[in-house]
Design a protein around this nucleic acid. Structure first.
Lengths: 191, 191
DNA sequence: GGTAAACTATACAAGAGTGTTCAGGTTAAG
DNA sequence: CTTAACCTGAACACTCTTGTATAGTTTACC
């Protein structure tokens, strides 16, 4: 079924896109933006913002939904299932670690604002990709089996997050991150 | 030099203590408490609260300062310097991982509210303990030297934080955490 | 070019938070 | 027992945020 778009004008479409993009960006920077902040960051009036998103909660939910969908697309395109787990992990980190971290941030912040129910409704695609990769690695003997999968996934994300924080703090340059990350992640996952 | 206490009455002293304790607790639970919340959580009036801490910012700074001092005491008492680094790490995790994490939370939340300057002024004692331990381990050959110390410290805290989150989410029981943590941390630190 | 959709600024109501003032009640300490 | 320190609730001014209403202007689209 095609997404039923009840014929919107092109400028409205453009504004909605801009709103969602800049909201996402504000959240990724660590802020919990107010509707006024979103409006001025998007370069539109506050009333226009409300005309598209009737409440703050609806806006945040939509940003979360799109973030999850986008992450899922990127991860699916990587075709992680078709490579040996260690190589798949290296590829995953090299090509998309900032995306994964940004997703984690939006997830955390949006969750804190709109409660866990909204998140449970949208099941979290990125976690499933990483979880599947780890489970496959356990089956092939590449990854350890002496710790719960949940714990391995949790440390995976925590380490990604640490890298992003270090980059933000200026103690790490973004180009060096993938190599460090791959090494550290493999250290935690190898038997 | 003894801390110059400008002769306060005992009940005032008691209230100040209660305020700082309950504020810390509220923050450790993940909240960003308002002055009203702090007051009612402490069982005192809002005006009394303001009479002791002229502003929210001053209160948060003091909570942060005391948290850092307390963590420093606990870590110093462990005498990490007197044991081989891997054993010292295991001991550190076993005896104080919840304290380290709670401290990290207060640090993060207070930082978000009062800005980084206040934190830079109070240099972070816990980070120094962990950093020293890791550097000593590198010198003895127990820990890896192919990654920057800053990065190893960052992952150390990130993994502690992950454990605390997992416990909060109910996916991990607190008693199992030290063993998992020690294993994972040593995996990231071993050469 | 006409028309409806979309935009804008301004203003309003309601709620929450900060910080202050005041007037009166309680209690620690000498 | 006296007194100064301390605590209290109520009220006030101020700011910020959410969400809605109004009236007028711009712009996409046929």
């Amino acid at each position: 079924m095609p997404t039923s778009t009840p014929k919107r004008r092109a400028d409205a479409e453009r504004n909605i896109e801009t709103i969602l993009r800049s909201t996402h960006e504000l959240i990724a920077q660590g802020a919990l933006p107010s509707m006024s902040e979103v409006a001025s960051a998007s370069g539109i009036g506050r009333v226009t913002l409300y005309s598209h998103f009737p409440s703050r909660e609806v806006l945040l939910e939509e940003v979360l939904r799109r973030g999850i969908a986008h992450t899922d697309e990127v991860l699916t395109a990587l075709k992680l299932d078709e490579q040996p787990p260690p190589e798949a992990l290296a590829r995953l980190v090299r090509e998309s670690w900032p995306i994964l971290d940004r997703h984690r941030r939006v997830r955390t912040i949006a969750l804190a604002e709109i409660g866990p129910e909204a998140l449970r409704r949208q099941h979290d695609a990125a976690f499933q990709h990483v979880g599947r990769l780890i489970e496959r690695g356990r089956a092939t003997g590449d990854f350890r089996t002496d710790q719960p999968v949940d714990w391995l996934v949790a440390t995976f994300y925590a380490i990604l997050h640490a890298a992003a924080d270090e980059v933000d703090a200026g103690r790490l340059v973004s180009e060096d991150a993938p190599a460090l990350l791959t090494t550290t992640l493999l250290s935690t996952l190898r038997p």
